[in-house]
Amino acid sequence: MAAAGWAGVLVPEEADGSDMGHAAAHVLAREMGRNLTVSPFLSTAVMAATLLRQLKDPSSNGKLKEIAAGELTYALALDESAKFSPENVELTAEKRGNGYILNGKKRFVIDGCDAERILVLAKSDEGLCLFDLANTTKGLEKTPLEMIDSRDAADLVFDNVELSGDALLGAAGSGYDLLKPALEAGQAALAAETIGLSEAAFAQTTDYLKERKQFGVTIGSFQALQHRAAHLWCEIELTHSAVLNAGRILDTAPDTATLAVSVAKARATDTAQKAVQEGVQMHGGMGMTDAFDMGFYMKRARVAAEWLGDYGYHAGVVAQLRGF
């Protein structure tokens, strides 16, 4: 992926990236969704790169170079409860001398076991602060999670983790402002991955409808199934528009992208749920077996639904921005 330039898709050219933008990143994410590619692409190449490039300092530039070269991976430690709520932070950062002491817990950290570095938001006297630390830092305990989608995730405990002052990214108190663009980039790219997943699950389902015979005919000739499949195609088409729109706005006017991103993530989450549920049902008993991919799509869709905000979270953002 690094050799193909994918890892540097959002890295500036001065840091050896291709800087092709979010819409291009979404093309990649969508294809990864189609074939369920396991990769730190979203955490590292999308979110960490978007976050670090805002800083424009030599240290961040160095990290961006390593990301583009595929030599450095990141995980974002965000959740503290069972639902995404990035601003509600209990993990504390206590100033000590020039550095900080971190105490608290983070859950459902995607790529949390294997990523070389962790980005974490902590509460301090100066407001929310964002820290960048190595995953080998003393006091950081990782518990691997056996995920339904078989991917890397971990619970992290920060037990008196001592960080030097240069682990703090940006100014103290500006943590969430730095994180927000990265979250939006990640949410949109995850929506793109999810639409790819929906498209692939749907394509397998319509193929099956054309091939499976019962009562002497292909089951795809039954109107009861045709109309459900056609409806699902409509849902996917609308969601695809929302994803393309989010990519376009992130590239042209990123400061105003919140609505577009939340529409895309909400729709993508919802559409994927529909696509995999119909996929299993229309595959009949075969859909319940591990021999078909449909179950893998279903499990990945469930994890993707919760990561970076579920339907309710993003519909809530939309409602707030639309004057509800």
């Binding site: 088409e237 609308l238 969601t239 528009s241 929302a242 393309l244 729109n245 609505l259 529409v263 909400a266 729709r267 919802d270 993003h314 519909a315 809530g316 939309v318 409602a319 639309r322 509800f324």
Partner: peptide
């Protein structure tokens, strides 16, 4: 809220 999300997606389409 659900109708609003869908309306926006339809407009984008």
């Amino acid at each position: 809220m659900r109708a609003e999300v869908d309306t926006l997606a339809l407009e984008m389409t």
